[in-house]
Write a protein that binds this DNA or RNA. Structure first.
Lengths: 420, 420
DNA sequence: AGGCTTGATTCATGGCATAAATCGTGGTGT
DNA sequence: ACACCACGATTTATGCCATGAATCAAGCCT
């Protein structure tokens, strides 16, 4: 029910987008296969593909013989047509990575963050420095960089300035997009890290092929990325999927967000360790940094540890059941470092706990899997942001230069027609 | 990222749909206003509107004078172009209603249901009988009935057969759509009652103007209807929005679904009354049917009643907060007979409880309102199903007859051009 | 070599939205 | 009163688009 017109150009762009998306995700493909699955006529496929080959974004990649006919030529997105840069602003470091269009990492840069609440200007400087560094390191033409995707841990407004609210970084209304754009001509995209990691899992990981999925991320904090009908669900102001602070135990444990009984207070790594320490009152508990302490808890042979972990699985199951009931996904993908650690050992129990708390039918229609890309894929996920835009637009739109040349009348023709 | 082509016809259909939708929802409108808000050229607006006037679906409705120029002609959807029939399959009765395209009710039929778990064949017979009855009662041409929408309380598969799973009716895999289609030529649409009521609220009630909203329905059971970016969110198998059975008190009260601690067990009318009776142990409690007992509880001056209601508001707030966090709507609309009863008295407290349990930012971006249509709007909601289809298609698609006449060459032209 | 099969491209056609030009319809000024 | 003006609606000429039919291209078989 969108109140927006459709023009002839939209049609062509939409069809280019469909073809390019399919070639990129499932390629190499022949023109014939493209025609089959998109329902476009072979003539149009040829026409559009020819245009894209002319622009260099698509290229031929070998051929497959057919029994007694002309062999089909396979098509793929040219890996070197352009490059994508993705960055992950974590709590301890800024990581920047450069990829070609085949999503092969070509260069990497990393900058530690010292302060617990880093200065936005410093982070922006790191990001811009990293952008330049990876371009130089990979030795690619800066003009061939199609976009710079940045993932942060808070919520990001979908405005031109890309205003960031990130509790864990202590950021409140930081216009990161505007700050970065001031320092580079490369198109900048900023989004939430959970959402970009979810996109990466959908394209390259455990979400492949699903149209409705929820990527549930359990780390120190808890978040989720919801994909509905193939596109990320954002809600009115892009903060949809705040799964960690849904109430699971009314009046229960105090969460760091200030409320009582949040899922995060029970299943987030911090909450789990806290519960373990309370259960262990008086006796020695785990120590060290959060991640190693969590590993220690998982390996601990004590009855207390087993009990805490068992309860954790129960709470997690109830939390996943909430997602299953409300979003009715065909797949739930469990990730995040703590989620993966729990899932690798307790996946059957987690499934069982979810079954116990979810409605029978939606549960039967879903499957619960583990993330395949690991938590380091956030930078790659960020790089999917410019890629998604490229696919939506069906390639790089013709710029002002091309438009000028087409509006100027062809100089050769007029005299010739007058001469006749 | 849909892998589907776009053709020239799609464009025209999309534009007709945009215009028709806008005329229907916000009409009467002038051609000029239509051009402004849709970004279509005035020429195209004229062209498309002219076509629709020719078909009879749009008509001129007066004009508005402009200071010193030709007056603008206003356009509206012709109320008598077609008729919509909606039906509500409730637990105690089947209600069928006929509307014109201005959504004015023209006829009504009602059939009581005796059994607690009615036979699907009986219900289908009632529905078909009601369909014929309202058509006759209103005295409209049966061929002018554009569709028959049926709302049921369970989940409905989005297949041709429209298979229904309804726990409260005791139905398990009833192909209601197929059963109805066998008895009528009118296009049949079957969907969940909460979803259709939500659609009605979005178009005519408290949801007007919102693109992201959640309609939260609290009655004997609990459900929700999620609208994302203007369209209903369904999930992979159309059962999204099962809000009632999200865990709110881990390990808490037994719910009628069999699980522990569901929201429905605390906030559903049955759960509330049950909690009141428990709190009142030994002393006289409320009686009668559920709705009057609930009213009695609301009016009761005792401290116990106040306490139970206060707790209910708290649980409800936590439940609404879950919706706010996960869906990030711009509006939450509270309805259902119990929800309205609670909301009319405790809306400020409900808002407060929600604020206590939701994240600050998503809560600040949303508003919590009450349904405006009342629980009897379910049949009207069901009638929105064929209307939504009509708007999506931009009117009634040209049938086989029209197609034949257009492929036959116009007989007058060829001789004339040859004569010159 | 000639036929055959199948893939890819070209060509003619009709549908579409659009800008520009034209037509309608009322008010206004001298 | 009549020309003029302002503004809405329609018509016309144009260019873009996907499509089916026809044509071209490339391999295999006998």
């Amino acid at each position: 029910m969108d109140a927006r017109r459709t023009t002839v150009r939209d049609m062509r762009r939409a069809n280019r987008s469909v073809l390019l998306t399919r070639i990129w995700l499932d390629g190499p493909l022949s023109r014939h296969e493209l025609g089959q699955t998109t329902a476009l006529s072979l003539a149009s496929v040829s026409n559009l593909v020819g245009e894209m080959i002319g622009e260099g974004i698509v290229e031929e990649a070998g051929s497959v013989e057919s029994d007694g006919g002309r062999p089909r030529v396979l098509l793929r997105v040219a890996p070197g047509y352009g490059y994508l840069v993705g960055a992950d602003v974590g709590e301890t470091r800024v990581q920047v990575e450069l990829f070609d269009l085949a999503m092969t990492a070509l260069a990497k840069a990393e900058y530690p963050i010292a302060a617990a609440e880093p200065d936005p200007d410093d982070v922006a400087a790191h990001l811009l420095h990293g952008l330049r560094a990876v371009i130089e390191q990979a030795g690619v033409d800066p003009g061939a960089v199609l976009g710079f995707g940045v993932a942060v841990s808070g919520t990001v407004e979908r405005t031109a300035d890309a205003v960031v609210h990130a509790q864990t970084l202590g950021w409140e209304g930081v216009p990161l997009g505007a700050m970065l754009r001031a320092g580079t001509d490369v198109p900048v995209h900023v989004d939430n890290g959970a959402k970009t990691l979810g996109q990466a899992e959908m394209w390259f990981g455990a979400g492949r092929g699903a149209r409705h999925a929820v990527i549930a991320l359990v780390g120190s904090g808890i978040g989720a990325s919801v994909v509905a009908d193939g596109v990320g669900y954002r809600g009115a102001h892009s903060s949809a999927g705040e799964w960690g602070h849904t109430t699971i135990v009314y009046g229960g444990r105090r969460c760091r967000c200030g409320n009582l009984g949040c899922l995060e207070a029970y299943v987030g790594a911090e909450g789990v360790l806290d519960r373990f320490r309370q259960a262990n009152r008086g006796r020695p508990a785990v120590g060290g940094d959060e991640e190693s302490a969590f590993g220690e808890l998982l390996r601990s042979p004590t009855r207390t540890a087993a009990k805490v972990l068992d309860e954790t699985v129960g709470y997690l199951g109830a939390g996943v059941a909430t997602l299953v009931n409300l979003f009715n996904p065909e797949r739930v993908v469990l990730g995040g470092w703590a989620g993966l650690a729990l899932g690798e050992r307790f996946l059957p129990q987690i499934r069982e706990a979810t079954a116990r708390h979810a409605l029978r039918q939606p549960y039967a229609q879903t499957s619960i899997e583990l993330c395949q890309l690991g938590p380091d894929a956030v930078a790659m996920g960020a790089a999917t942001l410019p890629m998604a835009r490229l696919l939506r637009q069906g390639g790089v739109p013709r710029g002002a230069v091309a438009r000028v040349t087409t509006t100027v009348p062809p100089p050769a023709r007029r005299p010739r027609s007058r001469a006749r």
